[in-house]
């Protein structure tokens, strides 16, 4: 990564888009000190990240990775969620509360005593998120956490993440190559070869679809449908909102 300068506001929902090898995952690992920069600094809540404050930073910045199977530390849901809280030396009562909090935040309370291996991909990934939430982080980084899931699992994760952002006021950094997911964010950043090449509101970024193509990113399906309808001569606006598009289609059909 080079010439990289990015400020993330507290409480925002930032989407980081990029093709394979664009440096997205490096960004995730820089944010919690799994990697330390050769040059430059990473500042977390006003203090520069060094080897000394690594674990304080990791308590505040939770990272969820791609493969749910490779993040499971224990065979039982409860024990797996407890892992992080145990690591930082909380008391038993506190850990118990943290488990309850984290599982309810991802909507998996009734699976507390279940075996991780028997859950679906989406459920496993929700447990992985709960495992990070047990540390009560202020920032949640999802490094392609939906890439290995089916559409249903992906929706489960997005619902959870959106709720955490809105209700728990957790800052979310969503690293993904699914444009649909970036739509839900408040700000999107496009990376290519370790640099930021575009940034702004997701809808503004999707307006520039020609440019996106040069970074090997394709528009979400709704956007593509808009473009195709326009090309076919229908009077619809550029939108990424299903409702608006549906109204526009209905209106133009009525007028013709």
């Amino acid at each position: 990564m080079k010439n990289f300068d990015l400020d993330i506001e507290e409480g925002e929902f930032l989407a980081v888009l990029g093709h394979n090898g664009s440096g997205k995952s490096t960004l995730a690992r820089l944010m919690n000190g799994l990697l330390l920069p050769d040059k430059g600094t990473v500042e977390v809540f006003g203090t520069a990240l060094t080897e000394k404050n690594l674990y304080d930073v990791r308590r505040n910045v939770g990272v969820v990775f791609q493969n749910p199977d490779n993040q499971t530390v224990s065979m039982l849901v409860e024990d797996d969620v407890a892992f992080g809280a145990e690591n930082v030396g909380l008391t038993r009562e506190e850990i118990g509360e943290r488990i309850a909090f984290a599982l309810s935040a991802v909507g998996m309370e009734e699976y507390r005593h279940a075996t991780v291996a028997r859950l679906s991909g989406g459920q496993k990934q929700r447990i992985a998120i709960a495992g990070v939430l047990a540390l009560k982080p202020r920032v949640l980084v999802l490094d392609e956490s939906t890439a290995m899931l089916d559409p249903r699992g992906r929706r489960e994760i997005m619902d959870v993440v959106l709720r955490l952002n809105r209700e728990e006021h957790i800052t979310v950094v969503l690293i993904t190559h699914f444009m649909e997911e970036a739509l839900l964010s408040s700000r999107a950043v496009v990376m290519n070869r370790g640099e930021i090449v575009m940034q702004g509101a997701p809808s503004d970024i999707f307006e520039r679809h020609e440019e996106l193509l040069t970074y090997n990113l394709t528009l979400p399906r709704i956007g593509e449908i808009c473009k195709k309808l326009q090309a076919g001569g229908m009077n619809v606006p550029d939108t990424l909102d299903v409702e608006i598009l549906a109204e526009a289609i209905a209106a133009s059909l009525r007028s013709s």
């Binding site: 690992r29 990791r58 990272v63 990775f65 530390v73 992985a128 495992g131 540390l135």
Partner: peptide, 9 residues
């Protein structure tokens, strides 16, 4: 990596 990310030391 996942264990380290969860403060394992």
């Amino acid at each position: 990596e996942a264990m380290e990310a969860r403060c394992y030391m």
